[in-house]
């Protein structure tokens, strides 16, 4: 991997408050994995190949060739509903900020992938479950508008539990806002690719997640509209094995391909190269 760019070092997340500082247990094969090993292997279990969730900064480092010029880096959310439950919503976001080292659940900016200029947005499950509120909507709109101005493809890596409940209907409207931005970019003939990672559900999958020209799913990702808990509550039916997995979606014709993390950059580069290739005169 390329040396850590400055912007990333500057915003390195604080160490996790996990019980064990050195080891982690793989949820798939139950083997103990050395954390440093895991980080070196792009957070893919060396024993069984299980894909751990990847933070957005690591993801940018994995995909971008070198520099990443962030857009809207300092945007933080308001509190449109004046939401309070266990604690007030601003306190929740502030806790997530210190926990994740992120100001919000998405990072967007411009960079190169495999030598191709792109606009790249990456969501992060560590910040409020990657949920979409005002800031996610705003940053995606900013990114897609920038891609439109510069006529460069947009790539959005999704990882989200859906719309953020604490921002209520304002969060719901971000589905409309991002859809309008995607539509406008498409009308300019600019390619748009999404990478659906674990998990991609709700308002994110039901808006820009599934609006792309090419949809790539990462190995093992859970992808769907309704989360399992909501389905359980509603239909009280046992869900089939592998339900809502990336592989299940491929089989049902809903994504273009399922790709391992180690091959993601190469695959994305190929797709972008073919999408941006000019027809000879």
């Amino acid at each position: 991997m390329a040396p850590t760019p400055n912007w990333l070092r500057r915003r390195a997340p604080k160490p996790e408050a996990s019980s064990d500082p050195l080891w982690v247990v793989c949820p798939e094969c139950n083997e103990r994995v050395y954390k440093k090993d895991l980080a070196e292997r792009l957070f893919v279990c060396p024993k069984c190949g299980h894909h751990f969730r990847l933070g957005s900064l690591d993801r940018v480092a994995l995909l971008a060739d070198g520099d990443f010029h962030e857009i809207g880096a300092n945007l933080v959310t308001g509190d449109p509903l004046q939401w309070v439950d266990r604690i007030p919503y601003p306190q929740k976001t502030s806790q997530d900020r210190s926990k994740s080292g992120m100001l919000e659940s998405i990072v967007v900016g411009t960079c190169r992938i495999g030598g191709i200029d792109v606009g790249l947005g990456v969501m992060d499950f560590a910040f409020r479950g990657g949920t979409m509120g005002s800031v996610v909507g705003e940053k995606i709109a900013m990114l897609l508008e920038e891609c439109g101005r510069r006529k460069v493809p947009a790539v959005l890596v999704c990882a989200s539990g859906g719309a953020r409940m604490e921002e209520g209907v304002i969060a719901l409207m971000q589905m409309a806002k991002t859809s309008l931005a995607v539509q406008r970019l498409g009308a300019l003939g600019v390619p748009f690719v999404t990478v659906l990672t674990d998990p991609t559900t709700g308002g994110v999958s039901a808006s820009f997640g599934f609006q792309a020209d090419v949809i790539i799913a990462e190995t093992g990702a859970a992808i769907g509209f309704a989360g399992r808990r909501v389905i359980d509550q509603t239909i009280r039916q046992k869900l089939p094995d592998g339900f809502q997995s990336a592989e299940f979606l491929l089989e049902h014709g809903q994504v273009d391909m399922v790709v391992r993390r180690t091959e993601l950059k190469g695959c994305l580069t190929n797709v972008l190269r073919l999408l941006t290739m000019k027809v000879p005169a």
Binding site: G78, D79, S134, G137, E138, E167, I170, M173
Partner: peptide, 9 residues
């Protein structure tokens, strides 16, 4: 829809 949201720098 572009202006719907609640955020600041």
């Amino acid at each position: 829809y572009r202006k719907l949201g609640s955020h600041s720098e």
